[in-house]
Amino acid sequence: MYSHYEFVTGPFAWMAFLIFIFGSIYRFYSLYKLARKKDGAVFEYMDLKFALRSIGHWLTPFGSRSMKLNPSMTVVTFLFHISLFLVPIFVFGHVVLWKENFDISWFTLPNIVADIMTLIVICSCAFFLWRRIKLPEVRYLTTVGDYVILLIVAAPFITGFWAYHQFPGFAAITIIHIISGEIMLIAIPFTKLFHMFTFPFTRGYIGSEFGGIRMAKDW
């Protein structure tokens, strides 16, 4: 227990953050280099104004026809992504760790809010799982990897919820919570989770094409 704790909060944590940061930088850099070499047109047509216009529309709930046609998915996906982003960064227990290790701190979420948001993430994952299994068009596209990703994302929140509420065995679960969070970090650069970084670029590019060249909206 003690050595496990020391490992997951020490070397493994460093490794996870380093892989996350440098893995992401590496993927970005290699994509950028490849784009420079092979997709010169992308840079030619990229337009900040239209990119932001498109991103703005797609970051607004029900800002596109696609979202209006799928209201449940829209509500879930917005709540999910907001919670997924806010909870790990702003929950008190994590801010304390930043303070302990790097002497930096910031705004924290009230426990009740973090708790609800955690539940939102867990329920959203259940919803996504249901979609994957139940809707034929989603099932057809689904690979084993998609289920694994869902698990990778849900695990830190399930274990975090468990540890916070001190359900039986929470001490061991806390360690699993830490590991699962680190696995998620490591997974980001090398899996579909990387979409968090590519979104502004894919969206921005089609927004630039539609806005600047095609003179049409893309939402």
Binding site: E6, F170, A171
Partner: peptide, 14 residues
């Protein structure tokens, strides 16, 4: 100290 002594609580909820 708890880690050094391998005794006592270390995780939040403990």
């Amino acid at each position: 100290c708890h880690l050094e002594e391998k005794k006592g609580p270390i995780t939040c909820g403990e």
